[in-house]
Design a protein around this nucleic acid. Structure first.
Length: 599
RNA sequence: GCCCCCGUAGCUCAAUGGAUAGAGCGCCUGACUUCGAAUCAGUAGGUUCGGUGUUCGAAUCACCGCGGGGGCGCCA
């Protein structure tokens, strides 16, 4: 917000430090001063300069010398426009801003940019984010929701930070799991088709779990049971063979049931406001993957051990590593069929060459870390310049209190079940707390608030951690939650509605209340928060920011009157409320959470 | 054996190498005749797993341990 002034000051500091014989650092960082009361930006540059001086052989005691430098700078340099003074606090150099100028600048910038407040300058680097990769012939559960929401929030952050962004989804539409489901369907449910997009999609999961149970060896099974199971397994293998051979009946059944899953997925992605740009189907990666393998063999990157063994890449050996780190990767089975890794190589090539991705982010659970390390290294060996800009955003599982969810066993928490329960609970709260809310608005509000609570719960935990799913805590509406933030937006909206119109401009020349200052401070930090969250791939930062902003607003709202004060303060505070509302809306949007006007 | 992630308040979790480590939940106390109480104000709660380093400065970086989780040639 004061970048040009602080940059100018940094230049002066550098010159003065050099004149004093203390080598200034290449970059001078300014951070908001951590204490209330005074208000401005501080830098620890004097510590760095004094330390550099000591390193160059000067006999200085660093803390004393740093304090001396800070005192010199504070007394010699003039505060830039918009700042009231420079002063040394211990060895920190602090620049105190003029509250009136700062406030007007922040509020004007926010309101003139509106939905674009906080948007970064356009960058020349295309980013592809891959997420929402559920397998077909299963159903969308709460773990998939974490993945999809993490990816969507990240895509929104990166895009808003200034980078052209492509959203990619990679459904796993083939593999043994899919064939298992098809076998169960054909064997026991041929011709059946439940009505309703979600009922049908969820039913496939039941078929899959049922089939799996029949194909899994149980301890203490009789000889007869073993024989039956092995016969079933033979049927399944035969079905996979027929799929591979392109048998029209099998392909038709596969495509028809696949569509049931895709219909369910599309409906959920739509209600989650996730606009996928590109779909890559695993089944379509097969042929290009085989071509990649041949290329790897021809170029001496891969070794062909067929027919005795598979095609492998000895990555550690290729890199000359002594310790085993990337190990040896199998890129083609000995029977010539492709693997997950092979397809990911083909997919990456397509991302680089066909979609011109300069940077590629994979939102995939942390258990696949080695897989991606191997994939990225092989891409590097293949000579792709984008390979070092591939990043695996690993996240933890959503587990149940009793352990991991398992689609195979059928014990998963379905996303739609949680959403419907969330909406029921919101309706209960509305009945209790907002009985005047018109009936016809309640369903929409229940969706916005219920989905928001669920989303915030998944995004406000660091992606490295597992989340133990518990309905009550997942759907909490109190404390650090989406409804708390949404309620701040509702309150701001309500004030603005009662005010009627918003003044086109207003100064902040009166004595600002501490709570006003803190609110303005949080608004001013939004653009930086966007850049940080995008650069670190951490929607969590934005989730934390949104909460802090809401907290500042609630505190302000409670203690500082807006509509009841005299002009010109009233006009200034109205604009502040409008700016807070805008920033809350922008922050929520980056989290893929709705900002309702009533709730 | 090797590699990756994690360890912070009773619980769940935060904290670009920077100043006094912060929230929520839970506990306790207070505030609705008020711009919407899904709110606010306040109390209590800490050897940041341990150790040794690097640094003017370490929850953060390095190394060694301890504890938990995950992974390691034809699953995805």
């Amino acid at each position: 917000m004061f970048d040009s002034e602080l940059n100018g000051l940094s230049t002066q500091i550098r010159e003065r430090l050099a004149a004093l014989g203390a080598p200034p650092p290449a970059r001078i960082d300014w951070a908001p001063v951590p204490f209330g009361g005074t208000w401005g930006f501080g830098t620890a540059v004097c510590f760095q300069a004094a330390a550099a001086e000591a390193r160059s052989g000067q006999p200085v005691r660093i803390p004393e010398r740093a304090a001396e430098l800070a005192a010199d700078l504070a007394s010699r340099l003039q505060p830039p426009h918009g700042f009231t003074r420079l002063h040394a606090d211990k060895a920190y150099l602090n620049a105190t801003v003029d509250p009136g100028i700062f406030a007007a600048r922040v509020i004007d910038a926010c309101l003139s940019s509106g939905p674009d407040f906080g948007r970064g300058a356009r960058r020349d680097e295309r980013v592809m984010v891959e997420y929402a990769q559920p397998n077909t012939h299963h159903s969308f559960h709460i773990g998939h929701a974490r993945n999809a929401l993490l990816g969507e929030s990240l895509a929104r952050l990166v895009e808003f930070a200034g980078f052209p962004t492509v959203r990619a989804s990679y459904p796993g539409d083939i593999g043994l799991g899919v064939i298992t489901c098809l076998w169960g369907y054909q064997r026991f449910h041929a011709g059946e088709e439940p009505q309703g997009v979600h009922a049908r999609g969820q039913w496939l999961l039941k078929v899959y779990a049922e089939a799996n149970a029949l194909l899994t060896a149980r301890p203490g099974e009789t000889a007869e049971e073993t024989a039956t199971r092995e016969a079933y397994d033979a049927e399944r293998r035969e079905l996979y063979r027929r799929w591979d051979a392109g048998d029209p009946d099998v392909r038709d059944l596969w495509l028809r049931t696949r569509q049931w899953s895709l219909d369910e997925l599309n409906d959920i992605l739509s209600l989650l406001s996730i606009p996928i740009d590109v779909y890559f189907f695993e089944s379509e990666a097969d042929e290009p993957a085989k071509a990649i393998v041949q290329d790897l063999i021809d170029r001496g990157i891969a070794e062909d051990e067929r027919p005795a063994g598979p095609v492998i890449v000895r990555i550690d050996e290729k890199l000359g590593l002594k310790k085993e780190k990337f190990r040896t990767a199998v890129v083609l089975r000995s029977d010539g069929t492709t693997l997950y890794l092979t397809k990911d190589l083909a997919l990456a090539k397509q991302k680089f060459e066909q979609f011109h991705a300069d940077r590629s982010i994979y939102v995939v659970d942390f258990r696949q870390s080695l897989h991606f390390q191997q994939a990225f290294k092989i891409l590097e060996l293949m000579g792709f310049p984008q390979a070092p800009k591939c990043f695996h955003l690993a996240y933890g599982y959503v587990t149940l209190p009793e352990g991991a969810m398992s689609a195979r066993k059928g014990n998963v928490v379905l996303f739609m079940d949680v959403l419907l329960e969330a909406e029921r609970r919101v309706l209960d709260v509305i009945a209790e707390k907002t009985p005047d809310l018109p009936q016809e608005q309640r369903a929409a509000v229940a969706r916005q608030v219920g989905l928001g609570a669920l989303t915030y719960g998944l995004l406000s935990v660091d992606n490295t951690r597992d989340i133990v799913f518990d309905m009550d805590s997942a759907l909490s509406f109190d404390g650090q939650t989406a409804p708390y933030i949404q309620n701040a937006h509702v309150r701001a909206t309500s004030i603005l509605r009662k005010a009627g119109s918003l003044p086109a401009s207003a100064g902040f020349t009166y004595a600002l209340d501490r709570l006003e200052l803190e609110l303005i401070d949080w608004i001013s930090r939004f653009p930086t928060a966007v850049q940080q969250a995008a650069a670190e791939y951490k929607p969590l930062h934005m989730a934390a920011y949104a909460y802090e902003l809401a907290r500042a607003f609630h505190a302000f709202y409670h203690a500082v009157p807006v509509l009841q004060v005299e002009e010109p303060v009233r006009a200034s505070r109205l604009r502040l409320v409008a700016a807070a509302r805008q920033t809350l809306a922008n922050a929520l949007r980056l989290l893929d959470i709705a900002a309702p006007d009533v709730m």
